[in-house]
Amino acid sequence: MSLLLEGVSHIYGEDTNLAVAALCNINLEIPEGQFIGLIGHTGSGKSTLIQHLNGLLQPSHGKIYFNGKDINEKSFDRKELRSKVGLVFQYPEHQLFEVTVFQDVCFGPKNLGLEQKEVEIRAYKALKQAGVKEEQFYQSPFELSGGQKRRVAIAGVLAMEPRVLILDEPTAGLDPAGRDEILGQIKKLQKETGITVILVSHSMEDVAEYVDRIIVMNKGKIILDNTPKEVFKEYKCLEEVGLAAPQVTYIMESLKEEGFMLSAEVTTIEEAKQEILSCFKK
């Protein structure tokens, strides 16, 4: 289930005088099973890029391949693609419409033409995976809090059992506890099922703990694409484009400048703690 982008560009409003080049010449390979963080400043083209991955937007130039097949070919089965590449939009709670939470989550699998029984099994599983409490299953989705709605909306996509799960800022507007919980659940799911996850965010801090690869975008281009450790080493470059490495990186850098013998290979607070403790023990 690999995705391959070749020279993809996207221009909004191409034949008006307000044309915006949102993506320029993106080349990208996304193999199966990776947990990827897609990071960029506001307006850098993240949302535009991910909408190409399940065929919601067509590139102005370039090609996108899913398992070696061009997804914008006429004969390509888009519906199949959309069941394999699940996309959770920014503020997904705005897409809820059903009478109960459970029915809303059933919407996706039902559209896949599955049997009622299978639909319900999937919905139940997805709600559990997204961390929705059982007593909320038969409530109206509009009575839930923002964070709970978010989980329901994520479950709505999980119920389609995609092989690639893309989440556009799933934690925007949530408190730190809610954020860690949702991201933790997604990480767990990814480990258990081996799906590919692409997590869009504009905060390094959010994703550093979870991802194995970070793609940094700026003005429609990919400027860095590497493991978190390597990306954070370029923190000067990140600052130039209005981003920042996690705070631990800065602390470790300062400590090193003060002459402490620390390794640079630290990305999370937990690792930093271990590193500093072991330094003092020496």
Binding site: Q51, R82, L87, Q95
Partner: peptide, 13 residues
């Protein structure tokens, strides 16, 4: 446009 896309992503037709 946004809601339509979100529902299409959930298999709506």
């Amino acid at each position: 446009d946004k809601i339509m896309k979100a529902q299409i992503a959930r298999g709506a037709d």
